[in-house]
Design a protein around this nucleic acid. Structure first.
Lengths: 333, 333
DNA sequence: CTGAAAGCGCTAACAG
DNA sequence: CTGTTAGCGCTTTCAG
């Protein structure tokens, strides 16, 4: 590949200055004569000089890289988070080391063990590790968690509670009196928040609520949920995510019922599929991209030396996207 | 965060050996007395010693990281590639630096400029740079390109030609005589390959082909393509990708026509949406995940010192997934 | 403002 | 097999 790359010494010799001056010309432009700096830069460009990041990191103890860990890059929800994270990182001149934990706390620990030393900060997008394990990480490098609260650590989360609230209001406005929640994995943090928000809205909205599950957060999980729901049908259903909602719709359609005539359905996440399915799925959209970018910016703020004063979780708003899967309860034929 | 991390010297002192021995105990276990090695490892564990990757990199000139550049991490096709890449990298003990070029050759260059020095190899998943620019990169670090041929550089690609061929055969078998191809962005390498493959299949399969576009590779692009197609309708259509195919179906349905009764539709990529749309979309599935993992393994092989002998592009097979969007031409009502 | 010199933590010869 | 001795390329005092 490369012949020996040009170093600071090569540039120094060619420019007729000391190596330290070349170094300063790049890292501390203010502390060097403007003309000399200019000359050095010219010479460096001619020689195609690129600073060696490892050497720099060794003496400065900063790498200009941050780690982003998520549970499954293939999941559109997380890939949006990754996108936002990458954008924010690139904008700040940082590179992103992305690791996929495949939903395993063990893998997560191993990965961190490997890359923690190579980054300036960490964003845990969907950590499955215990609180203590997360804190351990935070002790080594500035760490921000997403969609989770770990006592004392900075975090950014989507306001799932309010999202559920909006969904419930929408259904109540359409005249629905009974709502079933199709619960997702118990380990999933947003699941609990949503269910509680739905229950809390009962009296105020004058609805009764029921819970089915937990079901797998997949198309099939939704299909199975439909069977469970059929035992105690309600005129409205809110699902853990879009996939479950779509599976549910498919399930009830198989049973000869129609959406939204027989049952209104709401999902979570507003994945591309929500727009494509028939009928279009009403769903609670979360700003995943913003979640990723805010998360990274938060990390970088701490890298830059912010104190842990901002311990309060940052809450990002959701938006209810209404489509054809919800309708008035009176629409029942 | 951390107090001064423990170094090789701390371990050496605690274990009563020379620093170099500690180093060897980790990097070259064979070259050290088994018992001493064991003791060193124990002491190291007690002290919580972790090697400093920057220091190691500085002297070995290898970082155990590889760069993966792709055009848009939000695109499910690429996120699958990223997933495969990450898996292969992790398996080999490498970390993945992921960068999103946002379809811009300029950004791509800048990003590479920034991270090239920090990685042992590069995987260009959907480079928009010129051939010469790509070669420039390859001169600095082992580089593998995906879905593209850059003279002399190792590459891995999906056999889009055969995929198209299979699609055409499927349509011919159903009795279709005329096929329209909804072309994607001209800059996209697979687009040309597919169109040529379709044309080449004409005589043998006894079909005539037509081309519409290029259209944007989006839902809307597909809708517009439907309008263009309506000027010269054919009984079958193959789209650049699933999104275009789905948009097209939506477009023709709006015009009061039915799929597949009035027109059979085939997409490319087998994205999740293909399964969810109504009718289900017949599509050419590409092994995106494998593409990513093979790509990374290829890179690592070169990092490991393989000669450029394997200049032949590695071709990965596609699979035709048949669903309800294609049917016999006789099915016309 | 610039040069000289001392590391950052690890690996790599070279002796023994 | 183990210890000693130089660096890897850059930043950072410390003088001047």
């Amino acid at each position: 590949m490369a012949d020996r790359p040009t170093t600071i010494y090569d540039v120094a010799r060619a420019a007729g200055v000391a190596p330290s001056t070349v170094s300063r010309a790049f890292s501390r432009p203010g502390r060097v004569n403007a003309e000399t700096a200019e000359r050095i830069r010219t010479v460096a460009a001619e020689l195609g000089y690129r600073a060696n990041p490892q050497a720099r990191a060794l003496s400065t103890r900063t790498t200009s890289m941050i780690a982003v860990l998520l549970a499954d890059i293939g999941n559109p929800v997380f890939s949006e988070v990754a996108r936002g994270a990458e954008e924010a990182a690139a904008e700040a001149g940082y590179a992103m080391v992305l690791a996929d934990t495949r939903e395993s706390a063990g893998r997560e620990r191993e990965l961190l063990d490997k890359i923690l030393q190579s980054v300036d900060g960490v964003l845990l997008a969907s950590s499955r590790m215990s609180d203590t394990a997360v804190r351990q990480v935070a002790k080594v490098k500035p760490t921000v968690v997403l969609n989770r609260e770990v006592g004392g650590l900075p975090s950014v989360m989507v306001d799932h509670g309010r999202g559920m609230r909006r969904a419930a209001e929408h259904l109540a406005a359409l005249g629905h009196k009974q709502v079933t929640y199709l619960a997702g994995p118990e380990a999933a943090w947003p699941d609990g928040v949503r269910w509680r928000a739905l229950r809390d809205a009962r009296t105020e909205l004058g609805i009764t609520v029921r819970r089915v599950g937990p079901v797998a957060p997949t198309l099939n999980g939704g299909v199975r949920a439909a069977a469970a729901w059929a035992a105690h049908p309600t005129s409205a259903v809110v699902a853990y995510n879009d996939l479950v909602a779509i599976g549910f719709m498919r399930g009830v359609q198989t049973m000869g019922k129609e959406v939204p005539q027989d049952v209104s359905v709401i999902g979570f996440d507003n994945t591309p599929s929500a727009e494509i399915v028939t009928p279009g799925l009403t769903t609670v959209a979360a700003p995943q991209r913003a979640l990723g970018s805010r998360g990274v910016r938060h990390v970088l703020a701490f890298v830059g030396g912010a104190r842990s004063s901002s311990t309060e979780p940052l809450l990002l708003p959701t938006k209810l996207v209404t489509r054809a899967s919800t309708g008035p309860v009176a629409g029942r034929s």
